[in-house]
């Protein structure tokens, strides 16, 4: 297959749109959370100010190579996930680098950033970071399990590992979405989604009041800014994956924005309504409620 060089600027354009959308969406979500608490909330461009400030800090300290690579891996996870999933179905410009076996790769990228973070935070030498990453990895692993089961269920259902093909089957109309054809898998995946969006009730790993903010304890300046960039890209990339697998994908940008916002809101609504779980509670919750759903969905397919 000849490589189409035009894909690179297209991919960068996707990245640019998704990054800005993510920055604004994150601020909007923060604002919604604040309004629930009867606060006015942050300005919509607050994340840009934070990002520029962190890039603009004059000094930074490194603790070693892995410490530096941690945020880089994390960003790679986000960007990679985004680029290997067709952002807009049927568009030559925004299908990016998706190919036949991309579902497996996407699963890997979902986990990649956390692993990179584990190495980086471990090298920072701060005990809180090490404790935080242990808690984070246990929780993310428990949360990823139902998602992986759901993905295999979907792959079995459509007999393919190509996300583009999966989206193509769902284009016939509402009723052909995986949401309706395989509701159990979607349910398992959505429970896992709550766990991996780093919002309450499963954000105990990153919550500022907990073991001071866990893995990123030692991260600052540009390192933190890289992670903030990823915070804008990664949730969107993850939602794009969900949207493609379960909710019929998006054929144009307006539909994309709408669907991403709606899926994000699921975790927000749950988050503002429920208090935080402790790590062992959330692991137990995933294993008791989400994993059986995933297993059941595979069995039924």
């Amino acid at each position: 297959m000849p490589f189409d060089w035009m894909k690179i600027p297209y991919a960068l354009l996707t990245l640019f749109i998704v990054f800005n959308f993510g920055m604004l969406l994150n601020a909007l979500i923060q604002k919604i959370g604040a309004r629930v608490g009867r606060r006015y909330g942050v300005p919509i461009w607050q994340n840009y100010a934070d990002l520029i400030k962190n890039y603009g800090l004059r000094s930074s300290i490194t603790h070693g190579v892995m410490y530096y690579l941690g945020p880089v891996f994390r960003l790679t996870g986000g960007v990679g996930l985004l680029l290997f999933v067709p952002t807009i179905y049927g568009s030559e410009m925004f299908s990016n680098l998706s190919f036949a076996g991309d579902l497996i790769l996407a699963l890997y990228f979902v986990f990649f950033g956390t692993l990179g973070m584990a190495l980086g935070a471990g090298e920072s030498g701060h005990p809180n970071a090490a404790i935080g990453i242990t808690r984070g990895l246990s929780q993310v692993t428990a949360a990823e399990l139902p998602f992986a089961l759901a993905v295999f269920s979907v792959a079995l259902q459509y007999q393919t590992f190509s996300i583009t093909d999966i989206v193509a089957v769902q284009q016939a109309g509402f009723t052909s979405w995986t949401l309706f054809t395989n509701p159990l898998a979607v349910a398992a995946a959505m429970l896992s989604f709550l766990g991996s969006m780093m919002r309450p009730p499963f954000d105990v790993v990153l919550a500022p009041q907990e073991i001071p903010i866990g893995p990123p304890t030692e991260y600052h300046s540009s390192y933190l800014a890289l992670m903030q960039t990823n915070r804008a890209i990664f949730p969107i990339a993850k939602i794009v994956l969900y949207m493609s697998l379960f909710f019929g994908g998006a054929a144009s940008w307006p539909v994309f924005f709408l669907k991403v916002f709606a899926i994000y809101m699921v975790s927000v609504l749950v988050g503002v309504a429920f208090p935080r779980f402790r790590v062992e509670q959330s692991i137990r919750w995933f294993l008791i409620w989400a994993v059986p759903l995933g297993v059941l969905s595979i069995v039924l397919v």
């Binding site: 604040a34 606060r39 006015y40 909330g41 942050v42 300005p43 009041q209 001071p212 903010i213 304890t217």
Partner: peptide, 11 residues
């Protein structure tokens, strides 16, 4: 609500 002025607390 100091958050609206871009002020927040870091641990």
């Amino acid at each position: 609500d100091a958050y609206r002025f871009g002020i927040q607390w870091r641990p």
